[in-house]
């Protein structure tokens, strides 16, 4: 398996802990009673739809926003009372590009090196290494505003790493980045993880969630589920069938009437159906579809993917709220 290293990296003491962490704004409770703990050496993925409270959670953890209730501790320091010792040891890459567009790549790096008091030979070596690491060496004199979106993200990461932080918080680092740069970016994150850096990444992408050692699914400010990707996928109710009918739209209508169907999701020409009993539904489905003249081109049992697991968990959560 590609993610074998996950088990080889030792997971250490708690570095992030929150207790009933809450942040209310005028009209909305962005983070609602969050209890979270992250251990040294983890890649923790914070996933959830837009507006779930991921950004607010990260801002609370990096001590640039105060909670309205509850508390958060990073390295044991309280984010409200002791923000400065935390700031020295963490890196934060905001969702929005937050470097100086009118400064060159090198000038941006130098500025943050000054701010973090990285000096002398160490600084020179580190900047060279980061430029190389972020594949920006040949663009060192280009103004940051003139870099491509992917390069800007890598420069932001390089600036975040200038003081070798122990935890890096990344807020949707790959949103709006092309797939190739996205893959490259994650390769860099993986390298960091292997060097023992703790990462907390928020992402709307499920394939990225799969690369984390643990994921927390946020929805409406609350943590719906928080576990390893494997266990999260196993949490879905019932069994999953992948079915390819000759007419997806009509097949969906027909099958919706069947007993024992929990949920149906369409993916292109495929229907993915959560059911209580797979065998029973496959047998019955064949009959009802045939009656409507719809052919079943392919049908098999399958394991849910991250995305399906999340959609299913969120739908279940929404149903609970309605009741």
């Amino acid at each position: 398996m590609a993610w074998e290293w996950r088990t080889t990296v030792p997971v250490g003491d708690l570095v992030i802990e929150t207790e009933n962490l809450t942040r209310a704004f005028k009209n909305v409770v962005a983070v609602d009673g969050l209890n979270l703990s992250v251990r040294r050496g983890e890649i923790f993925g914070l996933v959830g739809p837009d507006g779930a409270g991921k950004t607010t959670t990260i801002r609370l953890l990096v001590a640039i926003m105060d909670p309205t209730d509850g508390q958060a501790r990073v390295f044991g320091y309280d984010t409200v009372r002791q923000p400065e010792p935390i700031k020295r040891r963490i890196g934060y890459m905001a969702q929005r590009f937050n470097l100086y567009g009118d400064l060159s790549v090198l000038e941006n790096l130098n500025f943050f090196a000054d701010v973090f008091e990285v000096r002398g030979k160490v600084r020179q070596e580190r900047i060279e290494r980061l430029l190389h690491f972020a594949r920006l060496t040949e663009f060192r004199d280009r103004r940051a505003a003139h870099l491509s979106g992917g390069m800007q993200k890598k420069l932001a990461l390089a600036c975040t790493l200038i003081h070798t932080p122990e935890i890096i918080f990344l807020d949707e680092p790959t949103t709006g980045v092309d797939p190739v740069s996205r893959r490259e970016f994650w390769d860099i994150l993986t390298e960091l993880h292997l060097q023992g850096v703790t990462l907390l990444v928020s992402t709307p992408y499920m394939d990225e969630a799969e690369r984390c050692s643990r994921v927390g699914l946020m929805y409406q400010g609350q943590m719906v589920v928080c576990d390893t990707p494997e266990r999260v996928k196993a949490m879905t109710e019932g069994e999953l069938i992948a079915l390819r009918p000759s007419d997806v739209r009509r097949a969906r209508e027909v099958l919706a009437g069947l007993e024992g169907i929990l949920e149906m999701q369409t993916f292109g020409d495929q229907l993915r159906i959560f059911v209580k009993d797979a065998d029973q539904v496959i047998t019955q489905g064949r009959v009802v579809l045939a009656a409507q003249g719809i052919e079943m081109l392919d049908v098999r049992r399958t394991r849910p993917r991250m995305e399906e697991a999340f959609i299913s968990l969120i739908r279940r959560r929404m149903a609970e709220k309605v009741l």
Binding site: I64, K87, I90, Y92, A94, N98, L99
Partner: peptide
């Protein structure tokens, strides 16, 4: 307005 304030206040400056 640039959004750079967020990156600045998260440093020990």
């Amino acid at each position: 307005e640039w959004g750079t304030m967020e990156g600045l206040i998260v440093t020990p400056i």
